Amino acid sequence: TRVETATETAWISLVTALHLVLGLSAVLGLLLLRKQFPAHYRRLRHALW
Rank of each mutant, 00 (worst) to 15 (best):
G23I: 14
V21E: 01
K35L: 11
V27F: 12
T7M: 15
H19E: 08
K35Q: 13
R2D: 13
T1F: 13
T16W: 02
T1M: 14
G29R: 07
L48W: 06
Y41E: 10
I12H: 05
A10S: 11
L20P: 07
R42A: 12
R43L: 08
T1Q: 13
V27Q: 05
L48G: 06
R2Q: 14
S25D: 05
S25G: 02
V15F: 09
V3S: 05
V27A: 10
T16Q: 03
V15R: 02
T1C: 10
L48Y: 04
L31Q: 01
H19Q: 11
E4I: 13
L48S: 00
Y41R: 01
H46T: 04
W49L: 08
R43G: 09
A6E: 07
A47F: 13
L20V: 12
T7G: 07
A10T: 06
L14S: 01
L33D: 01
H19R: 06
W49A: 06
H19K: 05
V27K: 00
L18P: 03
A10H: 05
W11Q: 02
V21K: 00
T1R: 10
V27P: 03
A39E: 13
L18G: 02
H19N: 13
A10Q: 10
T7P: 15
T5S: 06
A47C: 12
I12Q: 07
A39L: 13
R2T: 14
K35G: 01
G29L: 15
T5I: 05
G23N: 08
L14W: 11
L48I: 15
L24K: 06
L33R: 05
V21W: 00
T5L: 04
A6P: 08
T16I: 10
L44N: 00
S13G: 15
T16R: 03
R42K: 12
L30D: 05
A6M: 11
L18I: 08
K35E: 05
L31C: 15
L18V: 06
L28Q: 08
A39F: 10
H40V: 07
V21D: 05
R43E: 08
T1K: 11
H40K: 11
R2W: 14
E8D: 11
V21T: 15
W49R: 08
A47Q: 10
R34L: 07
F37T: 08
H46C: 09
L48V: 13
V27D: 01
E8P: 08
T7F: 12
G23F: 14
T1N: 07
E8G: 02
E4M: 12
R43F: 08
A47Y: 12
L32S: 00
F37K: 06
T7Q: 14
K35P: 00
F37S: 04
Y41M: 10
L31N: 04
E8V: 04
V15G: 02
T9I: 11
L24R: 03
A6H: 08
T5G: 05
P38V: 00
L33V: 10
A6L: 07
R42Q: 12
Y41H: 10
V27Y: 04
